[in-house]
Write a protein that binds this DNA or RNA. Structure first.
Lengths: 363, 363
DNA sequence: CTGAAAGCGCTTACAG
DNA sequence: CTGAAAGCGCTTACAG
């Protein structure tokens, strides 16, 4: 049912009170000029009758649905829960509902998903684009959450600065030979993080970037990254641009008998759910998703507001697109147990001490 | 805007063709009896004008919004992405949109969230209840996804049987002293999994259940579970009812120098994103979320269909609640490298061989 | 096979 | 301060 159970509508209230529906509407919305006493009577009767406004009817009349679309590049991304929760919360505080659309990592599906959202008449949408894809003007207000270096971005964490914080942290611990680990060479977010890491580590640090393949979810052994060799080659820190890669590195190193953090340090990004849970807990950098979501929703609200207005000279919104400079939300370094000073390691040689012999391994 | 950009509506098509809006509606919906030629002409004109139906207007008229609500107990749950993706996909195949609602683990918030969804006029909702909470009749069709032993459940994985599969797998490997690890003693899902595990392990196996606290996301050291001591006490397998706990166990054991799987085996549940990625990859049990989602949506569709009908004697739907027996979807055991035979371990004593000395540990 | 009319529940100018 | 009227875009009996 478009209007919820308690079958009461404005006409019912109007009839019960012997006034017109228009007056009920004005009284309830507070917009029209209705006498205080009448407003009170209307309110009371509305409650008595269990009145629930029909958002559908309001939408038809006003042209606003009160619904926002949330387009995610790949719902299976472990970061998604944080984003969805933050957006849902911010939207709901602003009185909006959130319709989800999953683009399954596919560009065609993303376009389809956006189309479905448009058909449903969303007032605006929040899009986390597939790495690097640019969102065309789609005729409705859009807020893009990616990274400041993505053209058309609206708001995002300052990934570069987050990387720089992490780089500085590692540099302070004495790490001078660091392996940077990424999964997608075309990702703006990852490149920004890596750029920041290098900058934070400083010009004297020796950095190597390793782009790794995503593990297929088959039951076969995930291909080892050869990190033990890297440790043997003198790398004392492994800085991944995602907690998932960091976890992969951490367990591979541990498995090889390389102690973290006393032999090498491991760091990630995003403070995903398992980061505080593993042993040693992962040092990482956290985004302020709540702040990002609030800014994204606020930008959308502004764009929606000014939609009806004539093409103003305030070129804040062009063709429904928020074009003001990207809002950069600071990231926060979270230091846990997976990082330590490089000293211990630097003095010893890098053989893998406790590595199980081949015979001990099962497969 | 409630109706998307291409400002065309049925009246525009009707006017352009010199027919009535009713005929356009009938032609487009295929319901009314309109001549094939006219149908073709209407279709062509609709495309030419870029006609997009107003779902809002249709909703107001028909009383159906074409939107379903998805209520999650806690959007931050790592299982959420799988669920949301599957539900979104199934709903969208059925022509429905999905509005999300997060109850943040809080019962009051859950009620609020359901209320907001109701106000928005959802045609039905999929609810994954907070552990054990029973969903009251809320006056709209509801599909509950929890576990078969939850009263009022609609469809879910057969958690008990999944546990039994895992139990049998461990038993076959020779494990006879197993530590079961759960996080919520009041969770029906976890209790079913544990019940299945015990049954699968058989009456001769020695089982102990450990209920652990969730780790606070602070930067302090997550409290160790003392699993090394358990290993020393002769436990050869650690079966967690969630991959998150399994990961916690795996890293704690590895950190303590206890080799997995050659010393002890570790298993989880749900095949969460990191399970194939860690070393050793985690043996786990996977739900068929797509099948669960399809069944949930199908149940909802049936309930929505029969909503208008008189109180039939087909007591499949009572007060909008699907009361037919729970659909149990089988779970699938995924064997990876974290499980091995208990033999190696059983022959040695259980001292932790490679444990770093206190001095080597940083904190 | 096709059309005229009513109405879903609301809001918004416009009169009184 | 309050009311009568129109209309958002569609669908659904009911006539022709």
């Amino acid at each position: 049912m478009a209007s919820p159970r308690p079958g009461s509508n404005m006409s019912a209230i109007a009839a019960a009170l012997g006034v017109s529906a228009a007056t009920v509407s004005n009284a309830l919305s507070g917009k029209g000029r209705v006498s205080p006493e009448l407003i009170e009577k209307v309110r009371a009767k509305a409650i008595e009758l269990g009145y629930v406004p029909s958002l559908t009817a309001r939408a038809l009349r006003t042209g606003r649905t009160g619904v926002l679309g949330l387009v995610l590049p790949d719902i299976a991304n472990p970061l998604f829960p944080q984003i969805a929760q933050a957006i849902e919360n911010a939207a709901s505080n602003a009185g909006y509902g959130v319709l989800i659309a999953d683009s399954r990592g596919d560009i065609a599906t993303q376009t389809e998903a956006i189309g479905r959202l448009l058909e449903r008449g969303v007032d605006g949408m929040v899009i986390v684009p597939r790495r690097g894809t640019r969102i065309a003007d789609i005729g409705c207000p859009v807020a893009v959450i990616d990274t400041p270096s993505t053209p058309g971005n609206t708001v995002s964490a300052d990934h570069w600065e987050g990387g720089a914080q992490m780089g500085r942290h590692l540099a302070e611990l004495g790490h001078a030979k660091v392996l940077l680990i990424g999964t997608s060479i075309s990702s703006n977010v990852q490149n920004d993080r890596i750029g920041g890491l290098k900058a934070g580590l400083g010009p004297d640090a020796e950095c190597e970037t390793m782009w790794i393949e995503k593990v297929e979810a088959v039951s076969g052994e995930g291909c080892p990254l050869g990190l033990a060799d890297k440790a043997a080659a003198g790398f004392t820190a492994f800085a991944a641009v995602s907690d998932l890669s960091a976890l992969r590195a951490l367990t591979e190193l541990q498995r090889a008998g390389i102690g973290v953090p006393e032999m090498v340090s491991v760091t990630g990004f995003d403070d995903l759910i398992w980061s505080p849970v593993v042993t040693p807990a992962l040092t990482t950098v956290r985004m302020d998703m709540a702040a990002i979501a609030d800014l994204a929703i606020a930008a959308l609200m502004r764009a929606i507001e000014s939609e009806g207005e004539p093409e103003g000279d305030e070129n804040e919104v062009v063709a429904g697109r928020v074009t003001s400079e990207t809002d950069r939300v600071p990231m926060q370094l979270v230091v846990r147990q997976s990082t330590g000073t490089a000293n211990l390691h630097a003095s010893s040689d890098a053989r893998t001490p406790n590595k199980p012999t081949a015979g001990e391994l099962k497969s």
